[in-house]
Design a protein around this nucleic acid. Structure first.
Length: 578
RNA sequence: GCGCCCGUGGCUCAAUAGGACAGAGCAACGGCCUUCUAAGCCGUGGGUUGCAGGUUCGAGUCCUGCCGGGCGCGCCA
């Protein structure tokens, strides 16, 4: 409906332009919006105010001229007015609103979907947690956010590709293998050894050992039993590590599947190395003279934490400062290995070369410091700005009994995502993660969520849906035939307001996709549910008058459809009974 | 010290691409179940949007500077 108004106002301005009231050439942008205040109509435009300057007229006078061009024969706008400093307010007719109910019912699951994205290819990379242990609650928030973003972008006409970047190269990964070895040795010798500082202590390390194929276990034992430094150390460790990664990845996949989160592709960093992706990316950078040998200043913070003294040496650096980063970034470690950043450059070039128009990354807030350099690299590689959108998802503050639960992978006392899903259920976890903008920190209280109290927001929305379903069950019991739904009798303020709000749903979906803000849908659903609950409490749906009943049933059907569509976008179930 | 994020009733958060009088929930208090599910509804209080400037017809929203909180700051991933 908003689009329709937009066309009209464009037409009105066009006529004034033809009449010479408004000059040719580019005009300042005006817009159509829905006023917060009901008394200001269903739609309003600031066109007269924005154009007043170029038209050399007072805003209100210009508004009057604009309205003279409004077609007289239309039925959709009941009345209009000039208000305040020069707003033009439009009031949609009740007949038009009633038709909207049928439009929603007819569109069904497609209501809210659009072709806005024009099949643009967009990759969303999310979760990408290191395969060194189970994913925790923080990852879960990123996972749900990414998943819903994908659903949103798909619904608005983008071609979406979901990807998980596996950090299966580098030191951390070997530490996982060594941790398994360590656990194996303990078992073999029936004793416990002090765990080296950075080894993984979690229970799952034993699980990995248990799941190990006999053959690999044997070679492990053989190697551990030998007193001499074993020349097969590298291969045994590599095989163990490989197995451990696969096990953990499989574990992660299961956790994500519990939340109905799936990926199109799991991209291996190791493979990127093996296939020369990094050399390729660095060659591209070199060809553009974006790598130079330079010295790196000792960083300000963090240095205190490190035991190793800072050593200044000449090394290849990416010219990140040419693209707005603070310092040029190193590409190689002292031992000649590539840095994580070098691999990241290669990975993002790889994404680009696979033909994606836009890249979205969902990162934890603790990776915020890397945004600039990756953006810089991508701009350097492609010459284009703004391909990459990094969405930083802030921390989840987990509490239990009001006490903060510490989450540290190293300390081994983190709460896994699985724990939380087990306790709270997938629907509540998903919904809860979406109740805040991702840039805001999120408090997640396990007790509250476990308690299944009224504070749990998902029930509120699901309940609205279940209530509507129950009306149909009620009809069945009473032997009332639904017949053909007809919104014609709807006339209460509450009913028309409800329709107006239903009408905003497609805009909300579009804006959520444009801004990459899934939480907007959750807020919408909560508001819609609230409006419905109010209406339901005040109005008898199954009225004795068949005409009235038909209308209300039609409205309920439309509300139900929008709730279903919205929950579907959130990946949350819409139970028919609660 | 530098970078990013955040700052809105007692608490947790909204506020539609800068729009008209800043809204919900929780908490507090008072009401509503012989009629479609009370996991619900209605009502009452509660705000100088951290502070100070600036841009604009108009600022919670944009710019600058402070203040407060979070995250990050080898050549870890």
């Amino acid at each position: 409906m908003k689009d329709l108004l937009g066309q009209w106002v464009d037409g009105m301005v066009g006529q004034l332009r033809a009449a010479g009231v408004v000059p040719d050439g580019p005009l300042p942008a005006f817009k159509i919006e829905r006023p917060k205040e009901r008394g200001h109509g269903d739609f309003s435009t600031n066109a007269a105010m924005v154009l007043a300057r170029v038209a050399r007229m007072k805003p209100r006078d210009l508004a009057a001229r604009l309205l003279e061009t409004l077609p007289a024969d239309q039925q959709d706008i009941e009345r209009w007015e000039i208000a305040g400093p020069g707003f033009i307010n439009f009031f949609v007719s009740a007949a038009r609103l009633r038709r909207q109910v049928h439009a929603i019912i007819d569109a069904g699951p497609d209501y809210g979907r659009s072709h806005m994205g024009q099949s643009e290819k967009i990759m969303v990379e999310f979760v990408s947690a290191n395969p060194t242990g189970p994913i925790h609650v923080g990852h879960g928030r990123g996972a749900v956010t990414g998943d819903v973003l994908c659903r949103l972008l798909t619904a608005t006409g983008y071609q979406v590709h979901r990807e998980y970047y596996i950090n299966d190269a580098g030191r951390q990964i070997n530490v996982l293998g060594r941790s398994v070895l360590h656990r194996c040795r303990e078992r073999l010798e029936h004793s416990s050894h002090p765990l080296p500082a950075d080894f993984y202590p979690g229970e799952y390390v034993s699980d990995i050992l248990d799941a190990m194929p006999e053959e690999l276990r044997q070679s492990l034992h053989a190697w551990l039993a030998s007193t001499q430094p074993h020349k097969e150390e590298e291969t045994v460790l590599a095989a163990t590590t490989r197995f451990a990664i696969d096990w953990v990845l499989d574990d992660i996949k299961k956790d994500l599947a519990r939340l109905d989160i799936h990926f199109d592709h799991w991209f291996s960093e190791r493979r990127l190395h093996e296939q020369g992706g990094i050399d390729h990316a660095l060659n591209v950078l070199r060809s553009k003279d974006l790598i130079h040998d330079g010295l790196l200043e000792k960083p300000k913070g963090g240095a205190e934490r490190s035991q190793d003294p800072w050593e200044t040496r000449k090394q290849p650096l990416f010219r990140a400062t040419a693209f707005g980063d603070d310092v040029d970034r190193p590409l190689q470690k002292p031992d000649g290995q590539y840095t994580y950043f070098a691999a990241d450059i290669a990975y993002h070039l790889n994404k680009y070369e696979r033909g994606f128009d836009r890249l979205v990354n969902i990162w934890g807030a603790d990776h915020g410091g890397y945004v600039k350099r990756v953006e810089a690299a991508l701009e350097g590689l492609t010459g284009k700005k703004g391909i990459l959108h990094v969405l930083l998802v802030q921390m989840v503050n987990l509490t239990r009994n009001g006490q903060p639960v510490r989450m540290s992978k190293r300390a081994g006392n983190f709460v896994t995502l699985r724990d939380v899903v087990d306790q709270v259920g997938a629907d509540a976890v998903r919904f809860w993660f979406l109740t805040r903008a991702s840039a805001s920190q999120l408090d997640f209280d396990l007790d509250l969520a476990v308690a299944r109290s009224n504070d749990n927001p998902v029930y509120y929305v699901q309940y609205a849906h279940a209530r509507i379903c129950s009306i149909w069950r009620q009809m069945e019991e009473k032997g009332i035939h639904a017949g053909t739904l007809d919104a014609g009798s709807l006339s209460l303020d509450a009913e028309l307001d409800l329709i107006r709000y239903l009408d905003t749903y497609p805009e909300t979906v579009a804006l959520a996709a444009i801004h990459l803000e899934p939480h907007r849908i959750v807020f919408y659903l909560q508001d819609l549910a609230a409006m419905f609950h109010t209406y339901y409490n005040a109005t008898r749906i199954l009225d004795d008058d068949p005409q009235v009943r038909m209308g209300r049933l039609a409205l309920c059907q439309a509300v139900r459809q929008v709730i279903v569509n919205g929950l579907q976008l959130m990946g949350v179930k819409a139970p028919e009974q609660m």
